[in-house]
């Protein structure tokens, strides 16, 4: 029998805020990729931007949103799939940012990068869902799954375009808000596509060893704290760099 799912709206808003924060930090780092002059600098910039986007804007957002979701069951998460979902998010975002973070903009690159990141968001989400261990089975509405992926791809493309082509304050703020929408739009559409059906109380193997909400809460807290520190350091470094440029 399908189960009713309700949301804690405060945590839903928090998930969007974390997604915007991660996107903001990531895109601040990503727009500096074209300025890298050595492969090492470029790799470092891509990895940091990919980490902030994959782990902060997407992975942390997903698990805050999952904490916001109350299906009336105790849920734990398989550690291996949960870790894999983080790796996939990081890799997809790094690849997408590397593609678009070239000095010369082109629509083809934007399409490839947006697809990479959008599918990365989707892959992370559905791997995270597959990691759920609970006395229920999940089924999906295929149309809504496709819609969730389309939202992720289109909004990612829009965010990347804004980040790399606008200038001034809107460059970062608007792109972060749109990227936050891409991640949250994908997630909550994906959640709408999911139906949880009670399996009669049968718990899957390894349920007791799974990650619990408090484990995830601490991890998410660590990631968000790191993002905030990274953003402050970046802001301080940019201010110093800006004042060091002589005419």
């Amino acid at each position: 029998m399908p189960m009713h799912v309700s949301y804690n709206w405060l945590l839903v808003l928090l998930s969007y805020a974390v997604s915007v924060l991660g996107s903001f930090t990531s895109l601040q780092l990503a727009v500096a990729i074209p300025l890298a002059t050595t492969p090492r600098q470029r790799t470092a910039a891509v990895a940091m931007a990919g980490g902030a986007m994959g782990l902060g804007a997407i992975w942390a957002m997903h698990f805050i949103a999952m904490l916001a979701c109350d299906s009336g069951m105790h849920v734990t998460y398989a550690p291996s799939l949960t870790a894999l979902s983080a790796v996939v998010a990081f890799a997809a975002c790094s690849a997408g940012l590397m593609l678009v973070g070239d000095a010369l903009f082109s629509w083809l690159r934007l399409l490839a990068a947006g697809s990479c990141m959008g599918l990365g968001v989707g892959a992370m989400h559905y791997l995270g869902m597959a990691a759920m261990m609970m006395p229920a089975v999940i089924s999906y509405n295929a149309g809504l799954v496709v819609a969730s992926l389309v939202i992720a791809i289109v909004a990612s493309m829009a965010a990347l375009w804004l980040a790399f082509n606008l200038r001034g304050p809107w460059q970062m703020v608007a792109s972060a808000l749109v990227m936050g929408f891409a991640v949250c739009g994908m997630h909550y559409t994906g959640m709408t596509a999911a139906t949880f059906t009670d399996n009669g109380g049968q718990l899957p193997d390894g349920y007791a060893d799974g990650l619990r909400g408090d484990n995830l809460g601490l991890t998410v807290f660590g990631i968000v704290g790191t993002l905030l520190v990274l953003m402050l350091v970046l802001h301080y470094w940019r201010q110093r760099y800006r004042s060091s440029i002589s005419i």
């Binding site: 727009v31 500096a32 074209p34 300025l35 678009v100 070239d102 000095a103 010369l104 903009f105 980040a163 790399f164 082509n165 606008l166 200038r167 001034g168 460059q171 800006r242 440029i245 002589s246 005419i247």
Partner: peptide, 26 residues
Amino acid sequence: RTGAWVYKRDYALGAKLGLSDAIKRI
């Protein structure tokens, strides 16, 4: 020299733009 300095200071982050976009946005 002033224009190049302003560019490096305020507008260098991001992709290279076409001329019409660069005129509008920078």
